[in-house]
Structures are given as structure tokens and as C-alpha cells.
Design a binder for these strands. Sequence first.
DNA 1: GTTAGCATGTAAGGAGTTACATGATTTT
DNA 2: AAAATCATGTAACTCCTTACATGCTAAC
Lengths: 199, 199
Amino acid sequence: MHRMARRAETIDLAVLGLLHEGPMHGYELRKRLNLMLGWGRVLSYGTLYPTLKRLLRAGLIEESPGSPTAVTGRPKIVYTVTDAGHEEFERLMSEAGPTAWEDDNFDIRFAFFSRTDMEIRLRVLEGRRMRLQERLDRVQRELSMTQAEVDRYAAELQRHGVESVEREVRWISDLIRAERGEGDPGSGPEPAPQPSGPA
Amino acid sequence: MHRMARRAETIDLAVLGLLHEGPMHGYELRKRLNLMLGWGRVLSYGTLYPTLKRLLRAGLIEESPGSPTAVTGRPKIVYTVTDAGHEEFERLMSEAGPTAWEDDNFDIRFAFFSRTDMEIRLRVLEGRRMRLQERLDRVQRELSMTQAEVDRYAAELQRHGVESVEREVRWISDLIRAERGEGDPGSGPEPAPQPSGPA
DNA sequence: GTTAGCATGTAAGGAGTTACATGATTTT
DNA sequence: AAAATCATGTAACTCCTTACATGCTAAC
């Protein structure tokens, strides 16, 4: 009972998901990851390479020596996802963890939505919306309880925060609507008819 | 050259800032902090109490025994900010650190804007706007370089991200305008005529 | 030929969380 | 009197970053 779902699973998910596009080596993976995680932080080698080793030991990915040009000490190691890795990917995509875990992983899950079915997509989206709404309610409750003189700037920060979350909720709601009524794209994302060829 | 500005300074700033409102003990501080940091994470005792000890050793805060009702082992310890603590607060409010540092601390600094002068406020706001714009430019550059088939959902996530940051930039711009032209509140925060009674 | 970028790793340390440990005070 | 909440702390552990260490390959 002392070892619940590690948070490192975010990186696992990202790596496994990216490797679905085809074999890749660490350096390339890192670049893609940094684009994907994007807004801010970059992933360091000190995290990536140990993670790859761990996934390897767990049998979720396999390493294959790259081109035979690399006869030196360390050849360019190319990783592929295994069947077990694919299963783990699907588990992580659909898993319902604690609030913080799901919040941390929402973006990365969303980015891989094409590789899941609609049922999962709706579950993830609705879970996200519910949590955002709960936070909104909590903050608004706390605000109404605090009748202490609110600082002008602190109040503005709160207002902006609430507005941002409300906007996020509307975004999610649009996405849910688009998922459900496929073919009725009022203002959602493009229909994009191609069914995504595998690899 | 191996010990640049610690990131823990965020909590230092928050604690020092809150103690300006009057003496407080740890438990109360934590509640206020959690309201303030708000959207998500809560601060744990395992961080707060060691932080208080550290600030105490550094002479930035002072502890005074609370009411004499507490004759037992651990009395309710009430903390006050010292002169040195006030100086450190002002330093942290105006300090220009690396990008990540300033981004991490923007919210907390903003919340304490009432306790600084306009010069600092403008500097912090303009710094924030500049960094957001830079990120926006970088992402847009990367997007134009990546002509690889973009996944439908990944693209939507990007679009939403860009939109959010653009909105943030507009918010900051409004605030800057409001700061500069005090008395010309087009659509900025409320004028709020009361000068905030101390405690 | 030397700089810049590709490529893979390890060691040390920072920052914070969880879980544990303890006891006082207030509410039910 | 039991339960909840106030209140203070410590130890172990996790995750990640920084800095170091190494060498190949392409561009200038």
C-alpha cells in the first residue's frame, strides 16, 4: 500500500506513444518530447536515458542496433515498442488515477487521442472537465467565505484564474460535443477525414 | 558558479509576503499559502516547517511564543517578519532571475503587487510579456518548420495552447496599460478607490 | 582543422511529497 | 468521551535537473 502509481508514468506514456510512429533513438526522442511537452520545461538526458533503460528492463521496448556503420563503442541504439509496451500504452491511456496524476497527464494523453477509441477519449475528456469544475467550485466557495478585505491585485489574479479555467471547461465541452456528434462540427477541430494509416 | 538562485525562493517570497499582513503560525500560513498558490498543488508540512526553520536561521523571520495558554511541550509558535526579512522580500520581488525562475514566481509576485511600487510592477509585467511572446515565436517557428503530417489532436492541442498564451499576453498588456495610465481604466481591473486598510 | 551538433551515458544534489509520530483543543 | 481539526515536526523516498564525461560526424 506504499507504492501507488508513480508519476514517472508520464514519460513512459510519452515515450511509448512516440515509438508507435516508428523506431527512434534517445536523442531524437528527446527532441520530439520537448516539442510535445512544449510550453516550458525540457526533458533532460538524466531523465530520458535511465527511463529508456527501465522500459527496456521491463520489456516494454526493445533495442536494435542501428546501421552497421556504428562499429565503435556505443552504436546508435534504436528503440522499438514491444507488444507488452503497446499494452502498457493502452493501460496508461485509459487508466483512472488520482486527480493530480490525471491532470498531469491530460495533455500527453490528448496528444495521443488518435491512437485510442472514442470511449477512452470521452472518458478522459469528461474526467478532465469534472475536475476543472470541481476546482472552480472549490475556489468560488472559498472566495465567498473569505469576506476579509481582498487585495486589489490578488483579486484580479483570482478573477483571471477563474476565467481561464472557465474557458478551459468550454474548450473541453466543445471537444466532447465534437466527439459525440462526429459529423456536426460546429466550431470544433477540423473533420480530417483520413483514418490515420498505421506507421 | 555552481549555486545559482535556488528555486525554493518561491516559498520564501510567499511566506515573507504573507507575514507582512501580521504574525502567523505555520498551520495558518499553510492554509493561506494553499489558497494563494491555489490552482492545484498544496504545500506540505514537510516543506513548510523546514522552510520556516531556514528563514529563522537566516534571520528573516522571528518566532515569538504565542499566548501563555501553551505551557506544554510545543507552544503555538507565531512568526513575524524582521527588517532583514522585509529587505529580502523586496529583493525577491524585484530580482531578475533566469526565465524559468521568473515564470515560476510570476503569480506570487503579482499577488503582492500592492506592496511594491509601480516601477517594479511594470518591470515584472513587461518581463513576463516578453517571455510569453518569445515562447510564442519559438513554437510558431517550430510549427512552420515541421511540415510532417501533424496529427489532428496534437494540432488542436497546439492551437489551444497558442490561443491561451496569446490571451495571457493580452491580459498582461491590459495590466501594463492600466499601470501606466492610472485613471484611464478602459477594460482593466476595477479602479478600487479604497486604499486598502492595513490589517 | 576546428567548431557545432549528434549521440549516450553517470553522479550528485535540490526540491518537495508521503507517511509517520505526537499531542492539544474544539466540537459533537 | 469520541471525533474532528488544530498544530508541529521528522525520515524516507521520488522525481528530476545540472554538471560532468565521452566520442562520433557533418559543416565551415
